[in-house]
């Protein structure tokens, strides 16, 4: 059998990726996913680890510098040989570059000197700093909505929009891969998006809890304990 059928059993042992987003409870835990991924060859497991190391936000320290992040991407691309996976890395890093530029511009910073970030638009973005969507509205259709959300200061909706966009990008690549290693890698990346999606719900819940707790504490001043003088 050829490489295109290399992971037929593994792919069929995973719940459909679309089910991840509609299920009331996660159909597949990370523990169970990792257990299934033991079927990967050593080389493929290494590529997948590099891919996640680059694309998963959980793998980044808060204070990581641009230079370190870019080196991590370039090092990973030396190991990732599959054209589809390389394309995914490029697309995602270009997305992060554009988002990073939007945030810098919102904070009133001047355009960076020279190239900024990673990918095709590294020089284009600083050169078109003042334009709406950096003049990339047609090339990156999702950027317009991202710009609107970042300007309206709605981080949760922005996070959802970016997760949606990343998910659609991955689904587009997934259509060309069914039972090969790329299909497995794309599945894991979609699982990571699902995980962040679920976490963003948890974050919203935490914010809501904090708001309610503050509101409750604010009313504490009105409470008169038994025996307390009025």
């Amino acid at each position: 059998m050829s490489d295109r059928d290399a992971y037929t059993a593994l792919v069929c042992s995973l719940p459909n990726s679309e089910r991840l987003f509609i299920a009331k409870k996660p159909p597949l835990s990370r523990l169970r996913l990792d257990s299934r991924l033991k079927a990967l060859t050593v080389a493929d497991a290494e590529v997948l680890a590099r891919l996640e190391h680059v694309l998963s936000w959980n793998e980044y320290a808060v204070d990581i510098t641009d230079a370190v992040a870019l080196k991590r991407v370039r090092d990973a691309l030396k190991v990732i040989r599959q054209p589809a996976l390389r394309k995914i890395v490029h697309e995602r890093m270009e997305m992060r570059t554009a988002m990073s530029a939007l945030r810098l511009r919102r904070d009133g910073l001047a355009p960076p000197a020279g190239a900024f970030g990673f990918g095709r638009w590294a020089r284009h973005i600083p050169a078109h700093w003042a334009e709406s969507c950096f003049g990339l509205g047609a090339a990156l259709p999702w950027l317009k909505e991202a710009q609107r959300l970042i300007e309206s200061d709605d981080p949760l909706a922005l996070e959802r929009h970016l997760l949606d966009t990343s998910y659609l990008m991955l689904k587009r690549h997934a259509a060309r891969h069914q039972f090969d290693f790329e299909a497995v890698a794309i599945y894991v990346l979609i699982w990571n998006i699902f995980d962040r999606w679920a976490q963003s719900d948890a974050s919203a819940a935490a914010r809501r809890f904090e708001f309610l707790a503050h509101a409750a504490m604010a009313q504490l001043g009105d409470i008169r304990f038994e025996g307390e003088p009025a």
């Binding site: 059928d5 037929t8 059993a9 593994l10 792919v11 069929c12 042992s13 995973l14 719940p15 039972f179």
Partner: peptide, 9 residues
């Protein structure tokens, strides 16, 4: 192989 994978799920 597909049927074996599906059986585990």
């Amino acid at each position: 192989q597909a049927s074996i994978g599906a059986m585990t799920e």
